[in-house]
Every structure is written in C-alpha cells, then in structure tokens.
C-alpha cells in the first residue's frame, strides 16, 4: 500500500474543516437549515464510511447495506417509542431515550444480523454476492413493510429526539457535533484498520484470494469480520439518521438506499479515507441545489453518475489527488 499523497491529505483536511466550519458559521448567523444539511451529509458519510470497509478495502460489493442502515434506524425508533409509551422494551427491561444505549443496541443488533447474512453471502462471489445481499435487504424491507406493530408501511415517528448526557440534542448544532465526532471516530477506525495487519490481509484478499490462502490466512474469516464491522458502522449511522429526521420508515431499508450508499462512495473515491465524506457532500449539495432548480434533479444526478463511472474513475478525490488507486 503506497502512502497517501500530499494532495490527498490536503484535500482531506479541507473537507474535514469545511464540514465543521460551515455549520458553525451557519449557526452563528442563525441559519439552522444549513446545520441540518451538514448533519445530513455527516450521517450519510458515516453510513458510507461503514460500507467503504467492505466495499473499498474488501472489494465486497454489498448491495444490501440499507438493511443495516434501516435496522439502526428502527433500533432508535423502536426504543424511543417504547420509552415514550413507558412500556418495557425487551425481557422486561425499561427502554431508554439515551443515545449511547441506543447506539450500542443499534450496533450490536446490526452485528448480530450481519453475522449470518455475511456467513451465507460470502459463500458466493461476484454477481451472486451482489444479489444475495440485495435479497437479504429486501427480506428485511418487506418484513418492516408488512409488520404493523411499528408502523408498517407508514413508518414510525420519534416524537422527541433522543438524549445524550450533557448535550442538548434538540438544538441542531450540538446534534451536528455529536454526529461529526462519530464520523471522525469512524474514519479514524477506517484508517487504523486499513494500516493494520488485518487490513493488509483484507486488501490482499481482494487483490488475490488464492495467494492469501496460500500464506495461511482464510479469506472467508477476514471478509466476514470486515462485513460485520462494516454493518455495525452503517447501523450507527442509521440510528443517527432516524434521530435527525425524527422518523424511521421502510424506505431506509429499500434497495434505492443501498444503491445510494454505493453511489456516495464511488462519487467521492472508492477505498479512500475521505471518499465517503466527499461523496456525501457532493450528493447532498447536488440534491439541494439541483433540487432547488428543477424537480427533475435525479435525471441530472443519473447523468453525472454515468459520467463519473464512464470517464472519471476514482471519483472526486481521484480527480483532486490524482493517480487511481491500485487493486
């Protein structure tokens, strides 16, 4: 793995500072809308950063990560609903609106669900892997749609945003800072994972799994661990996304969401540390500004995406930092 180029480091720092500075300034100028927009970018970036572990490092094209995004969201929504109605939650335990607990539940749930999904899906490869991850996500999507206890098709509102000790989460800026901290932590984890022995094995398995087996590492195990970690990070993002919108619905689980997460990564630059962040910025800003100009912004999004895939491989960061990654 070659060292990250100077231009990419500068680009990364600029992106990180911009994402922090704009909402701070917007909040100071009394423009909470832009704080919310930045929060949306941050959370989508976090979700994509999770997928980037499986997709960018491991080369595992999961077309079903919306499942974990949605499960994280439902964890937040369901716990908030139980706490709101003062009903016991699970095994007679009281529910809570405390974010740290909710996040833990979301992360553990996603890990537990990702383990069997990964174990079955990783037996296949190529198109079959893409399709079986999609099938698992659809399974959960249809379940959420047809199970009426938590809103079914109509979704589940969260009446009051969940709480974090010492932070007023009802205000846009503190909530943004929480999300931003979570994103930085996730990126730190991605970075240390990429440079660890585990990361080396994972990337080697992407490049040549036969050689990895030959040196005594089982690619299946490495990939399964990466898949589960990836799902957990995306699940955390889902819990935050539900709290941002104060609403969770099956659309968080839909295959469009899975597609969007992949789109974010590829727009930004696949396998790059800040690829998901750059991609999420580009995506949300396109959605906001094109959406302001024309109702048909998805048409232009489609054309831009087509252009990136066909002509600008390496995404936004690839264009700034140059040199496509190897592998």
């Amino acid at each position: 793995m070659k060292a990250t180029g100077a231009r990419e480091i500068i680009a990364n720092a600029t992106i990180a500072l911009l994402l922090l500075a704009v909402p701070l300034a917007a909040s100071a100028m009394g423009e909470p809308f832009y704080v919310t927009l930045a929060t949306r970018i941050t959370i989508l970036a976090l979700a994509a950063a999770g997928l980037n572990i499986a997709l960018g490092l491991g080369g595992l094209v999961s077309f079903g990560h919306a499942a974990f995004f949605g499960l994280g969201g439902y964890a937040a929504g369901i716990m908030a609903a139980h706490a709101f109605n003062a009903e016991p939650f699970f095994l007679g335990l009281d529910s809570t609106t405390s974010m740290p607990v909710i996040w833990l539940v979301a992360i553990v749930t996603c890990g537990l669900v990702a383990l069997p999904i990964g174990a079955i899906s990783l037996r296949t490869s190529g198109v079959y892997f893409i399709m079986i991850t999609l099938a698992f996500a659809q399974m959960i999507y249809y379940f959420a749609n047809s199970w009426p206890a938590y809103g079914g098709q109509d979704g589940l509102p969260i009446f009051i945003r969940n709480t974090f000790p010492g932070v007023n989460t009802a205000q846009p800026l503190p909530f943004f800072l929480l999300c931003y901290a979570a994103l930085l932590l996730a990126l730190l984890m991605f970075w240390s994972l990429r440079n660890s022995r585990f990361g080396a094995a994972l990337q080697a398995a992407r490049q040549n799994s036969v050689r990895v087996s030959a040196v005594g590492i089982a690619p299946f195990n490495v990939r399964l661990v990466a898949f589960v970690i990836s799902a957990m990070v995306t699940g955390l993002a889902g819990a935050l996304f539900a709290d941002l919108n104060r609403f969770v619905s099956p659309s968080m689980l839909s295959w469009h969401m899975s597609g969007e997460l992949i789109v974010l990564i590829v727009l930004g630059g696949i396998g790059r540390l800040f690829g998901p962040v750059a991609g999420a910025m580009l995506f949300v800003l396109l959605e906001h500004f094109l959406g302001g100009v024309t109702e048909r912004w998805q048409l232009f999004l489609g054309l831009i995406l087509l252009g990136v895939v066909l002509f600008a491989r390496g995404g936004l960061l690839g264009m700034i930092a140059g040199k496509a990654r190897h592998g």
Partner: peptide, 22 residues
Amino acid sequence: DHLDQVLATFALILVFSEGTRW
C-alpha cells in the same frame, strides 16, 4: 467490473425514470 456495471445501470434507471416522468 460488476461494481461499475451496477452503478452505471443504476444511473440509467434514474435517467429513464425521471425522463419518463418528465
């Protein structure tokens, strides 16, 4: 690779759907 194919044809869906709606 399959990833590029998935993305490009996903983009085509957006173009076709919004174009038809237009």
